[in-house]
Nucleic acid binder design. Structure first.
Lengths: 234, 234
DNA sequence: ACCTGAACACCGTTCAAGT
DNA sequence: ACCTGAACACCGTTCAAGT
């Protein structure tokens, strides 16, 4: 009976994230992680339900790194910006894990923490209920969408191409079909992702701060989304 | 020499998407697709570079379904909203393919088409260069972020739980730690995703329409992101 | 309660051969 | 140019057994 676990959840997370950071997502498997920890694959099933669960563990490890100021700012928008930027920094620090985060963020406890902090800031705008939900979705959508954009660039670089080559290829798209795409590819060549994030987020927050036009009443309906609590192992 | 291809790109796309729609992402493999088409796995390598390439093919098939009005609206924001909503509808029509879209949208030709149409609308706001890039990122980030939210709900339902159960589980989170999360879980219970999308997008567009505060000049730097052209097979 | 090796039913992909 | 079967090096996971 009562035998102490051989590995802690934190050990698993750290080892898995290290593997992903160093060698990419494809390098993470039950077998490779077990190997990195010096055991057989089956041992992992004492700590993790699934391969899926392992992926969630990694996403959670990334989100757990997010740090923001605990003291509220004067302006609620600054507070939201602070938390959102923290989440985004955590994601950017682990580019190879981004697909996992895009796909499992809402199953991570650490993700819930970030969400609640974001909501605390947004609630200070005077919103509650449905309006708060919409604002929350807008901000989180923006953050994870920016992470998606980040991923796209890294994928190509990963595939062995320099950023310059990627942009050049865009520039060599048929210019009659994709004139604007080519234009922003040029802009992207000298752009700082941090600035893009900041400016974009401020635009979103400005939109949320502006008086909102009346909207038709809700039809009662439908399922909850982005609301899945993380399943805790045993 | 010159032998006509046994399958067209469209056939592959259709068969793969059907498989995913019907049985989920895990049901798509080189072998299962080959089987559905009545060949051996190796035949697929005449049409596709990779397993990765197959994923991109599916994402492309989904984005190719996006349809929007070809005639420009009076207000540029309505035009952007039209295109963005079209992209979102396409995504929602294939919920089980969402992880692929989140992860490979920027490698899809059909995705480029949507992007260019979005840019055409945004350019009418008077933006170009860096400002256009930022506006573009904000809108696409919002759309794919909303898709991410959509995914989260479907995952749980897929896992065999009714939407009500999912929301109930959220409501039963520790209420001292996650008060706001619980609040919006309640709001989400009666919320229509379509309304959320519309309201959120309008907030983003309102923010983009508002006069922008001055921003510090760009440091020259960095790589392009979200700009990877799709690799065409021979 | 937790650990673990063997075995099974899958994968993607290389190779070599065919037309 | 395109098709294809056999074979290889991987996967996640079930089972049964150990402490």
């Amino acid at each position: 009976m009562g035998r102490p676990p051989k590995f802690s959840r934190e050990q698993l997370q750290a080892a898995a994230l290290t593997l992903v950071d160093a060698h990419g997502l494809e390098a993470l498997s039950m077998r490779s992680l077990a190997n990195a920890l010096g055991t057989g694959p089956m041992t992992l099933y004492n700590h993790v339900q699934d391969r899926e669960d392992l992926d969630t563990l990694v996403a959670d490890a990334v989100m757990a790194e997010a740090r923001w100021s605990p003291t509220p700012h004067a302006d609620w928008r600054d507070e939201v910006e602070d938390v959102a930027a923290a989440g985004w920094r955590a994601v950017r620090a682990h580019p190879r894990a981004i697909p996992l985060i895009l796909t499992r963020r809402s199953r991570s406890t650490a993700g819930l923490e970030v969400a609640e902090a974001l909501l605390a800031g947004l609630a200070r705008s005077g919103r509650s209920g449905h309006a708060l939900l919409v604002a929350f979705r807008a901000v989180t959508a923006f953050v994870s969408g920016m992470a998606q954009a980040e991923l796209a660039g890294r994928l190509a670089v990963e595939a062995g191409e320099s950023p310059e080559v990627v942009i050049d290829r865009f520039r060599s798209l048929p210019s009659d079909r994709y004139p604007r795409l080519i234009e922003i590819a040029g802009a992207a060549a000298t752009s700082d992702p941090e600035v893009e994030f900041r400016e974009g987020l401020r635009a979103v927050l400005a939109g949320l701060a502006a008086p909102r036009p009346p909207t038709p009443p809700q039809r009662a309906k439908k399922q909850g989304r982005d609301l899945t609590p993380s399943r805790r192992r045993s």
